[in-house]
Structures are given as C-alpha cells and as structure tokens.
C-alpha cells in the first residue's frame, strides 16, 4: 500500500502524459502495479523501484497506443487530422484551458516523441534516466526531445501568435 501511494503520482504523470486523462489511463495505472507485483521475483534492484515501475508504465502505455492505432486503422480508412481536437485559441486566456490545449497538443505527438517529453518534462527524469527507461542512447533522447518540442511549438503556433 505504501509503495503504491509513494509511486502513484509518477505513474499517473507517466500514463496520463502518454494517454491523456481518459478511463484507460487508470486501467493502465493499475496494470502497472499488478505487473510490478507479479515481477517482484525478477526485480534485481539494478534500477531504482521508481525507475522500474516507470519503465513498466511507459511500456504498457506504448502498447495501449499501438492498440488504439490498430483500432483506428480497423474502423477508419483515413488517418485522423493531426490538428483535430486542439481547442479553439480564443479560450487561451483561461489557465485551465491553456493546460488542456498543451495536453491535447502532446497527444498529437508521435509516441516516440511523446514518451521522451513525458519522462523528461512531465516526470522530471534526467536525460540519462530517460534513456535508461526507454533503453535508448542519450543522443537519441536528446534529438527526440528537440524534435518533439519543435513539433509541439508548431502545433501550438496559433497560440503563440497573438
């Protein structure tokens, strides 16, 4: 119970950052802890518990995104517009609206950019830790971070032009 409470915030930030604030996010959050419980005997303490749990959360989130993509392919013949669902820029004065806009913009990013942005900017992991969690070279993380932020800026450009 203590362990769940200790790591709930970081799992929530990871999963909601990756999937958005949707019902599936809680399911993936729960599944993260269940998987951790089931893999306790395999956990050798090479990484910190937090990093290990975050790795499970990010992998499950990426699987969920793949599942969604498959479903979209099955039910829609054409891919959805990259800029749909971004709320109207007239609402930008409202702080919570601004947050929603940012969250929606993150959801528009490709999962490979979303995962580095979530871990580095939302969870606050260092570049090195992000690379360890995603099992990627640090250079790849840095370039994905740069490209992800550029894309975000592009998506949000209507809100920057005032």
């Amino acid at each position: 119970m203590e362990l769940i409470k200790k790591h709930e915030a970081q799992v929530a930030a990871t999963v909601i950052g990756m999937l958005g604030n949707c019902p599936e996010a809680e399911d993936i959050g729960q599944e993260t802890f269940i998987r951790f419980y089931k893999s306790l005997d395999k956990f050798r303490g090479e990484a910190s518990t937090g990093t290990y749990i975050t790795r499970i959360a990010i992998n499950l989130s990426l699987n969920e995104l793949k599942r969604r993509k498959r479903q979209r392919r099955l039910f829609f013949s054409k891919s959805d517009n990259k800029f749909e669902n971004v709320p109207d820029k007239n609402n930008q004065e409202d702080e919570s609206e601004k947050n929603k806009i940012i969250r929606h913009a993150i959801q528009k990013l490709d999962p490979k950019f979303r995962s580095v942005i979530t871990l580095r900017l939302i969870n606050g992991y260092s570049t090195k830790e992000t690379a360890q969690i995603l099992k990627l070279p640090a250079g790849t993380v840095l370039s994905r971070l740069a490209r992800g932020q550029m894309k975000l800026k592009q998506i949000l450009s209507p809100f920057y032009r005032k």
Partner: peptide
C-alpha cells in the same frame, strides 16, 4: 508542460 502534469488517479 511540467506544471500541467496530472499526478493522481
């Protein structure tokens, strides 16, 4: 982005 994180279920 960092301030906007939803950190609870």
């Amino acid at each position: 982005i960092s301030e906007n994180a939803v950190a609870s279920f």
